[in-house]
Nucleic acid binder design. Structure first.
Length: 141
RNA sequence: ACUGCAAACCGCUCUAUCGUUUUGCUAAGCAAUUAGCGAAAAGGAAAGUCCGGACAACGUAGAGUACCACACCACCUAACGGAUGGGGUUUUUUUAUUAUCUUGAUAAUAAAGAAAUACAGAUAGUGUCGCAGAAAAUUACCGCCCUGAGCAAUCAGGGUAAGGGUGAAAACGUGCGGUAAGAGCGCACGACUUUUCCAAGUAAUUGGAAAAGUGGAUAAACCUUGUGGGUUGAAAUGCCACGUACAUUUCAGUUUUCCUUUUUGGAAAGUGGAGUUGCUCGCUCCAUUGUCUUGAAUUUUUGAGACAGCAGGAAGGGGUAGGCAGAUUGGGUUCGUCGGUAACGAUGAAACUAGAUAAAUGAUAGGGGCUUUUGUUUUGCUUUUGAGCGAAAUUGAGGUUACAGAAUUCGGCUUACAGGUUUGCAGUUUUU
């Protein structure tokens, strides 16, 4: 009995650490449309954070995330893919800080990360922006 | 050895940590699913979406027409506008021969090599042809000749296209005959086109002979001939689940005739609408029904109007946008053998090698290889003894790149590309 409980605890902690699963992806078209019409935002260079509170949670995670790189500033699909992977990787490595702060408060939030820089930055610069934004975000919610 | 061009091939690699997608086994769970251990995971162009297929949906018989594509021959292919081989034409280089004169140039012919080529028809018809020139396709400016008028200069009418001039191109070139002057008007030689015959070749075509002819260019102007083509594309399409509104506005039709009549039913035409692969004809289908008010006629007929219904068109609006199949084993890949000049075909063996869907295939750190550059050491050549050029070793600092990311799938084409390897051709330098 205790072993099963411990096992279960380990699973939850492990899941929240560094993985990025399907339930954390924002897929609902309704929520994305709502983000663009009534979402609030701030800028933590080179990323713009847009968020909105959802009425009913779609999964057990406190945040569902989507990310975009505008086609206008990066017309080649290769560059867009590279930036999208760097942003997702840095979000995956740093999201645990905001998960611990939000687990107590109820409700689920949808977040959209928009890349606003004009040139392709390397991984460390993007990670700095993500870290700063994730520190700021809990105070604004 | 270096440089340039063309073709073919390659398109950095290994380890650790943390992750993503699909999947095999094991365990847990009713199940959804979760965990552990493994396996696989983006290119030569995945790009452009330019051709051609596979596959799917959309036809109530059929016909005509429009539109589009292609165009020397053979062959390959599931198919192609693609590939392979051959032929013609044009341009160019080299060599040889002949002719001319300015004696080293020009022109012609032949052979060899290279490059280009949307390469059916200009003798079906219509159109166009800048500038110059009289005239750009039945033309006549200066000329030449004949006739008439006039003393003459010249004028009028007609014939001609030899000569001049313009042009990229002026109705085949040279010579002789011929003529009032001329003209392929006639003849000889030659050039070119078409047809027929003979020879070579599967054929395009080439060589020879004969006959007819002399026609400007342009079809990447319209067009003609021949061949082929239905349209739309995986957001296709099928199934399951969930959900919603035959609710709103608006448009047009609802007529006539005939047959049988107990009610009523049936048929034809017209009108309106829908389907019919772009259009037209034709074809198929649907609606054409009832109630009320009022007028005429007079006891069941008819005219007008209103309302509802019917089968539709248009506008605007509402709902959903989840899952499974399609969908990853294929005209495929690799390695052999045989046939073919080659594209390719036949046959044998082996392996299974992406399948996402707000869209996986990544991030970080370190090493190896490659490469750029700084310093030091050794060494070769040149030498004006200052140095310059090259090679090797070592050390430090960088870079690891270019073009570019599967989206149903296959064969091609086109375009982009850092760096490297091989082959061929051309040029320069050095040595023999």
């Amino acid at each position: 009995m205790i072993a099963i409980l411990c096992n279960h605890l380990f699973f939850t902690i492990h899941c929240n650490m560094f993985t990025f699963q399907k339930g954390e992806k924002l897929k609902s078209r309704k929520t994305i449309g709502k983000l663009f019409t009534e979402g609030k935002s701030f800028i933590s260079y080179p990323i713009r954070f847009v968020w909105v509170k959802m009425e009913s949670p779609l999964s057990e995670f406190p945040i569902q995330m989507a990310l975009t790189v505008p086609k206008r500033s990066f017309p080649k699909a290769v560059n867009r893919n590279r930036l999208r992977r760097r942003i997702r990787e840095s979000y995956r490595l740093n999201k645990h800080s905001i998960y611990t702060k939000l687990s107590s408060s109820s409700g689920q939030y949808g977040i959209m990360l928009i890349y606003i820089a004009r040139e392709t930055l390397d991984f460390h610069q993007i990670e700095e922006g993500i870290k700063k934004g994730l520190r700021k975000l809990p105070h604004r919610l």
